[in-house]
Design a protein around this nucleic acid. Structure first.
Length: 845
RNA sequence: GCGAGAAUGGCGGAAUCGGUAGACGCGCUGGACUUAGGAUCCAGUGGGAUUUCCCGUGGGGGUUCGAGUCCCCCUUCUCGCACCA
């Protein structure tokens, strides 16, 4: 009988469910292991084979760690609030909750077919009031700490959607999903003071095991820079402004100053003569988004306008002109800079554009030609002359501090976090406003603030022209006994900021998480997800976690001990345009000819490119189809076999056929396809074949290592080697097969369970102990060495494994082929690399 | 522009304290068993010569007895970040 994947998978998935095989253990005598997947957003499109790649990898880790004696927490849930569901709901004319429930059911069904060892009893969705009650509860904590506030801020306003979008949803001035234009607009929004945690978020990175590139991205995003803040007075006026600089040592080279166009002082100091020019410039630059303004190279041509005012350079009393320019950002530092064109590329470009003077203060370059940013002795700088940059910096900072003009300071690129959206499908804020418009927390006892039912989710505009969130139409809901409710909702990041804590005790309605459970399970030992979340999600979650830590609500400062990014899966895409800008074709619509690929329908030439798997590129493979055709185990194995986890790889459906053949061969080790009984060569007693034992223990070693280093592709390969050898061996012992099935089980759990049972075991293989590899079984009696002459392999010899260097050389020299090479010249040098090769240096040979 | 990573057969990928390049799989070729097989099994599969030879890890230099691996220069691709004073 052949292996019937469908039947076997149904049988074991049902059994795991009814016997609660993967329920989270409650005893506390064993070490714990919390392995977590970044939970998905349940979109309407369902899963393609790229999505579960990470889940399969963590499943191997979770199942193996469990067999190794750990208590494993392995869970799955849904990041189910968000704009796409709301838009889908509008399209289909139903409530987002229905859309969400349906999408979740699809996702869950697809994942369950893969046999992933989740504790499904802990599943939850962030849009469930039982979860968002506690999201609101955490918001209260942050608010009470003074970390949440309202402010008028410039936001990405999308008129077509009627909502504010986050920066990451906007690219080149349009919404990335729909292409609708986005414009800058100032609105009152909820903000989090994540900047207060900038230093902590930086130092915390020292104590986690994360990919270096991700750590670096977070550091750069936080963007710490040391420098000085100092005051410039406006000449002939009481007004003054502060500037931030990382190069206070170049203050003597200041020949003008620049304010951001939005700087509050601009209007007051502009001279009558310049008023027209300034107004024109403000008009021009006001149309640009912050992103447009910051997407320029440092030496790009600059724009700006002169205010007519002069400021006094504090270090030498010189009057320097005050300009405005959009290369100075209002949102960074103080929104004003002093310009030293000699030693700053941007200032240099600006000075060249407007003919402003360039004064060298650090020797070493030709500053009229280009800004010199290297080190050198200071010149034209009074008491700083002759000093290098570092010394000059500390000297000038001390000088400024003595006189009360400025001080050494630290600045961050990190901005406060804009936390409100004008949408329906998100967590309501636990906030009400009194008649004066002051915000107040909704009492903890009244949480959750439930999202009211609406039938229309589109945002509108109020009578004053201001945007109105959908919740503003829920009249009855809005008017609470405590005051008027906040009608904005939280962004999608909110629910995912702490979901890993909710998994610890999702059934508790009295607390967000059980403190004893938190002490035991946290931190997450292994967190696997895409690197597209390298900054935002992972930074936001760390921020909340740090706050919770400060409040004594969690016991670890960092939530995610080890982080790993699975790569993006690509697949061949077919398009009738060489740049992939035309019509895409499905693989089944394509035919390969001698001249390349053509469309079956009309024979038009097609171009191919490996592209990210995506429905819009017609290159997705559906896991359901592949489970149907080849079985879940074959699919799981191929997900891991196709390449290193962090590299993603090129998907080929045919590859699943290959791992399926492997599964079939495994099956035939235990089940004779003709009789359905054990094959005769599978013996319960007898001496295990030595070579087969070697392959077995090599595989055990490899697989065991891969559980920690996550290099599963070579582990699958090692298991294939064992099965190939076992298939051709004369006898295979039950002991060998049982050891093999246990290392196979995390990868291909269904077939492993079935064969384990056929070998007489009554308990699930998921609870069987992990086999240890025996180093002595890897040893060999004789080894084959390459004999090189002048670095080229000319012969191979068999030598005893224990042979000495001299013995090896003697055998090598005695070799017939080697003899002929020795005859060609004088043997100058002999190199023996134990266990590897012999190299004979014979000049002239 | 800056930064990071990558480039190995027809394809996915192995092998990096420098030590027999191409494990394992896909695909392909030939054969066996078969009414048939996209089933299974056996053999082969980097290129070129063809008996023990030459050339091969994006290109060009270098170090070394020996380089996919180390160093220098270049090309291409992918992914980040992009006027943060």
């Amino acid at each position: 009988m052949r292996y019937d994947a469908q039947a076997v998978e149904r049988k074991w998935q049902t059994r795991w469910e009814t016997e609660k095989t993967f329920a989270t253990p409650t005893d506390r005598t064993r070490p714990k292991y919390y392995v977590l997947d970044m939970f998905p957003y349940p979109s309407g499109a369902g899963l393609h084979v790229g999505h579960p790649k990470g889940y399969v990898a963590t499943d191997v880790v979770g199942r193996a760690k469990r067999m190794m004696g750990f208590n494993v927490l392995r869970v799955m849930g849904w990041d189910s609030f968000g704009l796409p569901s709301e838009r889908q709901a509008v399209r289909e004319g139903i409530h987002p909750r229905e859309v969400t429930d349906r999408n979740i059911a699809t996702f869950r069904g697809q994942l369950q077919k893969l046999g992933l060892a989740y504790d499904w009893d802990r599943e939850f969705a962030t849009s469930d009031p039982r979860h968002y009650k506690w999201t609101q509860w955490i918001f209260r904590k942050l608010y009470e700490q003074g970390l949440a506030y309202q402010a008028d801020v410039a936001v990405n306003w999308c008129p077509a959607l009627g909502t504010v979008l986050s920066n990451e949803e906007v690219n080149d001035g349009v919404y990335v999903e729909t292409g609708d234009p986005v414009e800058p607009r100032t609105m009152k929004q909820w903000m989090f003071r994540i900047t207060e945690y900038a230093e902590r978020l930086l130092s915390g990175l020292d104590n986690v095991d994360w990919p270096a590139s991700t750590e670096k991205k977070q550091r750069e995003w936080i963007g710490r820079s040391e420098g000085a803040q100092l005051r410039f007075d406006i000449q002939g006026s009481d007004a003054s402004f502060e500037v931030f600089t990382t190069r206070p040592d170049t203050l003597f080279g200041c020949t003008y100053v620049v304010l951001a166009p939005e700087h509050p002082l601009v209007d007051a100091i502009t001279s009558d003569a310049q008023r027209g020019a300034i107004a024109a410039y403000l008009d021009e630059t006001g149309k640009k988004s912050d992103r447009d303004r910051t997407s320029q190279a440092a030496d790009a041509p600059k724009t700006g306008a002169f205010t007519g005012a002069y400021a006094v350079c504090p270090v030498n009393g010189e009057a320097v002109p005050v300009w405005i320019s959009d290369y100075v950002l209002a949102s960074y530092g103080t929104g004003a800079v002093f310009a030293c064109p000699a030693h700053d590329e941007r200032d240099h470009a600006f000075a060249r554009t407007f003919g402003l003077p360039i004064r060298e203060v650090v020797a070493g370059g030709d500053v009229q030609e280009a800004a010199y940013t290297g080190d050198g002795p200071h010149v034209n700088s009074g008491f700083l002359d002759g000093l290098d940059i570092d010394t000059a910096k500390s000297r000038i900072i001390a000088w400024l501090e003595e006189r009360g003009i400025g001080k050494g300071t630290v600045n961050y690129k990190l901005r406060d976090w804009l936390f409100s959206r004008q949408r329906y499908w998100g967590e309501p804020f636990p906030i009400v406003f009194d008649d004066d418009g002051n915000p107040h927390l909704v009492p903890e006892s009244e949480l959750p603030v439930l999202l009211p039912d609406l039938t229309d989710f589109t945002p509108t505009t109020g009578s004053d022209g201001e945007p109105l969130p959908p919740l503003a139409r829920a009249e009855a809901w809005m008017n609470s006994p405590h005051g008027r409710r906040e009608t904005n909702t939280m962004p999608q990041w909110a629910g995912s900021c702490w979901y890993y804590l909710r998994f610890l005790s999702p059934d508790r309605d009295d607390v967000p998480w059980d403190t004893e459970e938190e002490k035991y399970w946290m931190p997450v030992d292994l967190y696997v997800g895409g690197n597209e979340h390298a900054v935002l999600h992972l930074l936001y979650a760390r921020f909340w976690h740090e706050v919770l830590f400060d409040l004594g609500l969690v016991t670890t400062p960092e939530p995610f001990e080890r982080l790993f990014h699975q790569g993006m899966i690509h697949a061949m895409a077919y398009n009738d345009d060489p740049d992939m800008q035309g019509k895409f074709f499905y693989p089944h619509e394509v035919e390969q000819t001698d001249d390349g690929f053509v469309a079956k329908s009309d024979g038009r030439k097609l171009y191919t490119k490996n592209m990210k798997m995506s429905k819009s590129r017609y290159n997705v493979s559906n896991p359901d189809d592949l489970c149907e055709e080849h079985g879940a185990d074959a699919l799981r194995l191929y997900e891991l076999f196709m390449g290193p986890l962090e590299e993603g790889g090129q998907w080929e459906d045919a590859g699943v056929a290959g791992t399926r053949r492997f599964v079939d061969r495994v099956w035939r080790l235990v089940v004779d396809p003709l009789t359905g009984e054990r094959p005769e060569k599978l013996v319960s007693a007898g001496t295990p074949d030595r070579d087969l034992d070697r392959a077995l223990h090599a595989a055990i070693k490899k697989v065991t290592e891969s559980v920690d280093d996550l290099r599963f592709n070579t582990s699958v390969s090692a298991m294939m080697v064992f099965v190939n050898e076992a298939t051709s061996a004369n006898t295979v012992t039950v002991e060998q097969v049982e050891a093999f099935l246990r290392i196979l089980a995390p990868f291909a759990p269904h077939v492993a369970e079935e064969l384990w049972e056929r070998l007489g075991h009554t308990e699930s293989i998921a609870n069987a102990p992990w086999p240890a590899h025996d180093e002595s079984k890897l040893a060999v009696d004789t080894i084959t060495l390459a004999v090189q002459v002048n670095g080229k392999v000319r012969a191979t010899i068999e030598v005893p494994a224990e042979a000495s260097k001299d013995e090896v050389l003697a055998i090598a020299r005695a070799d017939e082929k080697v003899q002929s090479w020795l005859a060609k010249g004088e043997l100058k040098r002999e190199i023996v690399v134990p266990g590897r090769l012999v190299n004979l240096v014979i000049p002239g040979a």
